[in-house]
Design a binder for these strands. Structure first.
Lengths: 162, 162
DNA sequence: GCTTACATACTCGGATAGTGGATGTCCGAGTAGCAAAGG
DNA sequence: CCTTTGCTACTCGGACATCCACTATCCGAGTATGTAAGC
C-alpha cells in the first residue's frame, strides 16, 4: 500500500503552479528541470491533473499548465485522487458469502463489518487530506524555505513562464 | 494505492480465531474452506500474522493457528501492518533537493512540508485502525449476523478445531 | 510602416515497451496423534 | 490391561513460476509565436 511517486511529483508541481501569477502557464519541461525529473514521465502526472480538471493546459510555445482554480480551492485530496484514483483503498470481496453454513440464496443486509471499519479509516485519511489546501501548502513552504532561496527559485520560474 | 486482498483474508481469519475457545487451534485448511479461499495462498497471509507474533502456530494433526493475545489486545492496525508492512504509505524522495537554485551542499532543516502533510494523513488512517480491536469486531459481527447462522458457523468451526 | 499569410518550433496527449511486486502454486521439515506390539 | 515404540498423516514454513500494474519512453496532433512578404 504505497502511493506512486507520481503523487509526490504532482504535489510539488502544484506547489509551483500555485505561486504563479494569474493566468500564466508553466511547461512540463520547466517543472521537470526544476525538480530533476524525467520530463516525459512527469507529463503523465500532469495529464492526470488535467483530466481531473485541476489544471488547464495550453499548446504551443510559452504553453504549459496553470491551476484552473485558486490555490485555496484545491485540496491535497483533489491532487491525490487525480493521480491515484478515487477508489477506496480497501476493496471488500464479500468472502463471507462463501460461508458453507449459509442457506442458499441468502442475502446480506449491509456491508460487512470489516469493510465498514476499513472504510472508516480510509475516510479518516481522506478527511485529513481534504483539510489542507494548496494555499496552506504555499504558506508552509514560505515559512520553511530560506528567503534567498525562495526568491531565487521564484525568479528561476518566472524566467520560464509563458 | 490499494491494499492487497491478503489484508481482507487476514482480518476475516482473525475474526474466526477470536471466537475460538482459549488455547484451541484452527488449521489453514479449515479457514480456507470456511472463506472459500485457496488454502496454499491463504497460508501466506497467516504466515505474516505468525511472523508478527499475532498468532501462534502448531504442527501435526489438530494443529493450526490461534491468537497469541486476547482479542481485546489486538488492533486492526496490528493485522494490517503485519500483512502490508509498517512503512508509511507516502515516501518522500526529497526531490526539492534537485532545485537548481540551491547552493552546493545545502542541507534541509526538517522534512519537506508536503511529506509532513501526507504523513499526518497516514497517521490519521493508522489512528483510526488502532482504535478498533478484534474484540470490538466480534461484537459488531454478532450484531450483524443472524443468530441461526452465527450458531451454525460456530459449530462448523468447532468440529474442526484441534 | 502596417497588415496578413506562412513556416517553425514548441507544446500537450495518447500509444507503446520494460520491470518489480503481488498473486498463485508447489514441495520439504517437523510434530502430534494413532496403532500395534510387547510386557 | 497398560506401557512403549514406531509409523502415519497432517500441519506449517519457505522456495519456485506467473501475471498485472507502475515505470519509463516514444511519436503524432495541434497551436502560439516569430518572420517575411505584400500593400
Amino acid at each position: 500500500m504505497i502511493l506512486k511517486s507520481q503523487v509526490e511529483w504532482a504535489l510539488h508541481c502544484c506547489a509551483i503552479l500555485a505561486g504563479l501569477p494569474d493566468g500564466r502557464y508553466l511547461s512540463t519541461k520547466a517543472l521537470a528541470e526544476f525538480h530533476g525529473l524525467p520530463k516525459e514521465y512527469l507529463s503523465k502526472a500532469l495529464q492526470s491533473l488535467s483530466q481531473a480538471r485541476l489544471v488547464d493546459s495550453t499548446l504551443g510555445p510559452s504553453g504549459g499548465y496553470r491551476l484552473s482554480r485558486p490555490p485555496a480551492e484545491i485540496t491535497f485530496l483533489d491532487v491525490v485522487e487525480a493521480v491515484e484514483g478515487k477508489e477506496r483503498s480497501f476493496v471488500c470481496n464479500n468472502i463471507r458469502a462463501n460461508n458453507p453454513c449459509r442457506p442458499e440464496g441468502y442475502c446480506d443486509a449491509g456491508p460487512c463489518a470489516i469493510a465498514r471499519i476499513m472504510w472508516d479509516a480510509d475516510e479518516a485519511w481522506r478527511a485529513s487530506l481534504r483539510a489542507v489546501t494548496l494555499a496552506m501548502l504555499v504558506q508552509s513552504l514560505e515559512k520553511d524555505v530560506p528567503p534567498a532561496l525562495w526568491r531565487e527559485s521564484f525568479e528561476w520560474v518566472m524566467k520560464r513562464v509563458g
